[in-house]
């Protein structure tokens, strides 16, 4: 399955929220590619815009948010057909054909992501009937089969159970069953394990990995947990304040991170062998969304900030075919005029 074919290509995506207090640039220039059958992990602190970005991929950003510019190019099959999701009417019939069928999504809160008013089965069958036009009976059979596949015990009984009678882990499994019900080519998982306890987390991640092997779909996994990243990812994209600051294969990110933010992130996670004082949190706080810093948005917190970082917005630098970084430290390598010499790289 993994033929390195590009499935989803995001170019300079901007999603802004127009509130009374001002404009929040939740996503402010995101570039991504997701290859079919592969897993891309989108990493970043809370509030960096990763959840908004992945909602944009489905065209379900809600008011006052809006896709302001950029392209979300979706290549559903091998014959080169291309759909720009960003340009579609978010309420139109075409994009609804994609949602739930080609690209499906699971969410952070398994407790509230299913409606307590309808049975689990009802909500999964709805998805199948909507996209396949199968009869309810066939859809029900398929649902029970799916529930079994995601490891729900006694699926023929639980299909008629209300979500609030299931545990969080069971609900997340049901959500996954729903997401897989139409054999999607891509699954977006928005922190699906954050709200679960640690053992359940591991089970859900294993389940997603297993199902990915079986169904051969691409997975976009949003998380702030670098441990999960190490386990799942083929590629990693690191986001900071609405921008992807570094993108590379997972090994490169962990072994040779280039962006100071990625480096800080990696230093801030505890390792078992570490001594206590080695833990190094990122200094400062995520800036107020209404007053983003000028220049490189990371400069107030960056240990390697230079004078130029205050004024110049860095653009993307390609370090090698698979490794992209958005940092002024590396721009001069491409011969960009530079006022001051880069301060020590490691």
């Amino acid at each position: 399955m993994a033929d390195n074919r590009v499935l989803l290509e995001v170019r300079d995506l901007k999603v802004h929220f127009f509130t009374d207090e001002g404009v929040v640039k939740a996503v402010d220039g995101v570039d991504l590619t997701i290859e079919s059958g592969k897993t891309l992990c989108l990493v970043g602190e809370s509030g960096c815009g990763k959840s908004v970005a992945c909602r944009a991929f489905l065209g379900i950003v809600q008011r006052p948010g809006r896709i302001v510019s950029g392209e979300i190019l979706f290549h559903p099959d091998g014959n080169g057909a291309t759909i720009d999701i960003a340009a579609m009417d978010p309420k139109g019939a075409e994009i609804r054909q994609i949602r739930g069928r080609e690209i499906s999504m699971i969410f952070q809160e398994p407790m509230t992501s299913l409606s307590p008013m309808y049975t689990v089965g009802n909500q999964i069958i709805e998805n199948i009937v909507l996209h396949t036009r199968d009869s309810k009976e066939i859809a029900r059979e398929r649902t029970i089969q799916l529930l079994d596949q995601v490891g729900i015990p006694r699926p023929d009984r639980l299909v008629d159970e209300y979500p609030f009678r299931l545990s969080g882990g069971m609900r997340q499994r049901a959500m996954i069953a729903m997401a897989l019900s139409c054999n999607p080519t891509m699954l977006i998982a928005d922190e699906p394990t954050t709200a679960l306890d640690v053992t359940t987390q591991a089970q859900i991640i294993d389940l997603i990995l297993d199902l990915q092997h079986e169904y051969g779909m691409a997975v976009l996994f949003i998380t702030h947990d670098l441990g999960v990243v190490a386990e799942l990812a083929d590629d990693v994209a690191v986001m900071y304040l609405g921008k992807v600051v570094e993108r590379a294969p997972v090994d490169t990110i962990f072994n040779d991170p280039k962006h100071p933010y990625t480096q800080s992130l990696l230093r801030s996670i505890p390792k078992i062998a570490m001594r206590r004082e080695e833990l190094d949190p990122i200094k400062g706080m995520v800036p107020n969304p209404f007053r983003r810093p000028d220049g490189c948005t990371f400069h107030p917190r960056c240990p390697k900030a230079m004078e130029v970082c205050r004024h110049v917005v860095p653009s993307v630098t390609q370090l090698d075919p698979n490794h992209l970084v958005r940092c002024l430290l590396y721009e001069s390598q491409e011969g960009r005029p530079d006022e001051s010499a880069p301060a020590g790289r490691n």
Partner: peptide, 15 residues
Amino acid sequence: NKPYVETARAKGLSE
């Protein structure tokens, strides 16, 4: 604003 509405939207149901 509840998540289940978003779930339903992500399924491709008409508004």
